[in-house]
């Protein structure tokens, strides 16, 4: 079922994920894998449950049923569904961005990237005590953190504006800054919720390059939700299609593109143009 040949254990394995809100089933028995060093896209019409899958993965929701197993190349496995929200970022190193950008708008661009390295710096500062008195250990750690931030700033072209408020950046820069911030947590898996939303074609192309760079140079898994098919088809190695909370297709972009179920979900069935008989009868009576 999986796209490319991969090692026995994928980076992320989602098994029978189900999320119910009261009577509403937002995600219904969805299983898929996301491989290391690959870009996996989750697509689907509005309300298909894509963001809910993300929220389950990153601990914002507790799944009703299902197992979410993260197996990084090094280190131990994590069962994400059992972890408390913030620990997924801290321990399992799953980073995410948001559909509506969530930067720290009144902090500078550089500070945004340093906050992402909080846990590392917190330890280096001896939980503030050493740092408070300017211990060299902490100063060195902070210098390194700034270097990492600078690396990503160079990559997204914001080095010159590093000391300005993040909220003052143009929309496209904010999108990329949010990705850079997520990368500063040095994640195993990067989850991007509609990173191309609201970008113009040029910015969209820059984003593609950035995502490919992250996949190829940083060798991590990228999971993205996207509506923009030009982004999805160009850069994804593997596509998962959801509709009404169910998985309807899974495979390489080419395969998914030609899958009749996907075409049906996106364009609608031709039979649907005819109304059900009882509705037609109602209409005739009313007229």
């Amino acid at each position: 079922m999986n796209a490319a040949g991969m090692s026995a254990v994928p980076l992320l394995r989602v098994e029978h994920l189900t999320m119910r809100f009261g009577g509403l089933v937002a995600v219904d028995d969805v299983s898929f894998d996301a491989a290391d060093r690959q870009i996996t896209a989750i697509i689907g019409p509005n309300g298909a449950g894509k963001t809910t899958v993300f929220n389950c993965l990153t601990g914002f929701y507790k799944p009703t049923v299902g197992r979410l197993m993260l197996s990084p190349a090094v280190g131990s496995e994590f069962l994400l569904e059992r972890m408390e929200g913030y620990r997924i970022g801290q321990r399992a190193r799953v980073a995410r961005t948001f559909q509506n950008i969530r930067l720290f708008p009144r902090m500078s661009v550089l500070e945004n990237l340093l906050v992402a390295q909080h846990n590392k710096l917190m330890r280096a500062s001896g939980f503030t005590l050493l740092g408070l008195f300017g211990a060299p250990v902490y100063r060195k750690a902070e210098g390194k953190a700034v270097e990492l931030a600078r690396y990503w700033l160079d990559r997204i072209g914001l080095t010159a504006r590093a000391d300005e408020d993040a909220g003052n950046m143009p929309y496209g820069d904010q999108r990329r800054l949010e990705i850079a911030r997520a990368m500063c947590t040095e994640p195993h898996l990067l989850c991007l919720d509609e990173p191309a939303a609201g970008l113009n074609p040029r910015e969209s192309a820059e984003l593609n390059d950035l995502l490919k760079f992250i996949r190829d140079e940083h060798r991590i898994g990228v999971l993205l939700i996207e509506h923009d098919m030009s982004v999805v088809m160009k850069i994804s190695d593997h596509v998962v299609v959801l509709d009404y909370g169910r998985k309807i297709s899974d495979g390489t972009p080419e395969r998914v593109r030609n899958d009749p179920a996907v075409i049906r979900a996106y364009l609608g069935e031709e039979e649907n143009e005819a109304l059900p008989p009882e509705v037609e009868a109602d209409l005739r009576q009313g007229a």
């Binding site: 929200g85 913030y86 970022g89 948001f98 969530r102 720290f104 846990n119």
Partner: peptide, 10 residues
């Protein structure tokens, strides 16, 4: 933004 902090593992 508390939500973003949570996502960053704070």
């Amino acid at each position: 933004d508390e939500t973003a902090c949570r996502a960053l593992g704070i």
